[in-house]
Write a protein that binds this DNA or RNA. Sequence first.
DNA 1: CTATGTGTTGAT
DNA 2: TCAACACATAGG
Length: 286
Amino acid sequence: MGSGAASVVLDSTLGEESAAGRNSKLPSSRYKGVVPQPNGRWGAQIYERHQRVWLGTFADEVEAARAYDVAAQRFRGGDAVTNFAPSSAGDEEGALVLDFLAAHSKAEIVDMLRNHTYQDELRQSKRAGASAAAFGGCRRALSYHETAREMLFEKEVTPSDVGKLNRLVIPKQHAEKHFPLRSGTEEACKGVLLNFEDAGGRVWRFRYSYWNSSQSYVLTKGWIRFVKEKNLKPGDVIRFWQSTGPEKQLYIDRGDAQSPVRLFGVNISERQEGGERSQGGDGSVL
DNA sequence: CTATGTGTTGAT
DNA sequence: TCAACACATAGG
């Protein structure tokens, strides 16, 4: 529970009382649209037409404040009062966000916030949007090192991933999102060949398929060669990327080799305003 | 049982 | 519109 981050700002009017009244008052949030929950978590809410619209609960107060900001901008437009710097059409990143908000109904946005899937959905839309933009604009082909790309996901490889099983398990969640296989078809059964480019520009070809026996998505043929070549050890992190252009070239590289995340020359790997996130898996930076 | 979200009220 | 507070109830 008590995430250390939240500073305990005790109401000065409270003093030291409440010896009898066991229920000390809940701490108010410093953020608009954020309300404390009895269990130490934080709720987000926005009002519309005299009615409260619940935006979900969050472990992190700042995350709740962000959720409110998203809703505020969708519900009330560009001049909405927000906790943190609102997305502006001025910068590329902000324009993307605004487009995304405009493209979805209020109910959809609320749903994403309540389910904590907003970040994921937004990132997905960025991928599509970037492709579309690249189609429209007349730009020369980008060379390898200039290619705009975006990280899809990363995995800390397990002993079995780099062992004698000659396969890498791709976490189901990520596999189904980024490398969908039409189940039931021969595509899912026999698998498909996927090409990945590494940091050195070398192309690796892996067979990608679904194993019914273990209900997992795996990279098989070609994988062990990559392991040996890169000297992958258990605990190493590998990352999967995809170019944001229309070619949708896939990339793979080691996690430490931190290459910058760029989207048309704008570094989008920086944090937005505000704090950190700690929740499970998804909430990543992008 | 706990966590979530609603009913409701008084304030701004 | 907003948040504080109490508490019903959703959900594991």
